[in-house]
Amino acid sequence: MPFVSKPRKFNASINETVLGVGDKAVTLGGLNTLPLHFFDAPAKNPPAVGIEITDVDADLSAFPELAAFYEGAKTPAERAKKAAAAEGAQFVCLRFEGADPGGLNRSAAECAAIAKEVAEAIDLPLVISGCKNVEKDAEIFAACAEATSGKNVLFLSAREENYKTVGASTALAYGQKVGAESAVDINLAKQLNVVMTQLGIAPGSIVMNVGSAAAGYGFEYVASTLDRVKAAALEQNDNMLQMPIMTPVSAETWGVKESIMPEQDMPEWGSQEERAVAMETVTASACLASGSDAVILRHPKSVKTIAAMIAALL
């Protein structure tokens, strides 16, 4: 008997959210099939891959390839230019590690100046992420939203504690896009979308960050969260969960022992840089298979690999 393919398409679809402006703008979401099931329906917008830089000039000596890639780039804007040229990168994520009150404690005004320079240096869409301190993030996001006004920047992310300030100062005040961050909690993911919508933010301006973990570090909770969110969005047509999902993969994978243990301490594990790339690549592919509409990666090699994987599946 011949094989008859029965495409599994849903009557609901993920919202389309545009980041950036001009020719290089990226549209996230739009899918009406299960993740990566491009055989069920052509992908309107394939999942997007972003590359992460930070505002601080980090010591990259443990990662020779990464150091070579950014060689000579001293400022965030210079690093952003190099990052934007990485093969497969569709957007750049600027992470304000230096804003952390426990670290460099960069002021909101300094961050805004950096964000402006970075936004002007690249033509790819920009995503700005904070330092994970809810009060400080609210301050820097407000300043950066004003400084990058008109660039259609995504801010990662508003959380339960600061969604009102972050939502109002980014999406409502400057028409920017805003992330809704919940740490692997489906009910909170939905709740944040509900309250942010009630605040007056258009559903199309919201991107979800439902949390992540490095592969092997409780990733099954991430996978089941992503699955459940997509099931609600597509099967139950729940419009409070139809926002596209962006997963900052690098923020998780570069902190686990596989990525931070130097080769001289663990020679049997081989190259530290290769391990870090492998952790990032494996986690990113698992996120995409479970439902992320975009991933953020640090190493240009990971970016290239994941972009190639998506292209090969199309």
Partner: peptide, 12 residues
């Protein structure tokens, strides 16, 4: 289980 719980479920 027809719909996913959120604290504001009565409002949507």
């Amino acid at each position: 289980g027809d719909t996913l719980y959120a604290d504001s479920y009565l409002e949507v």
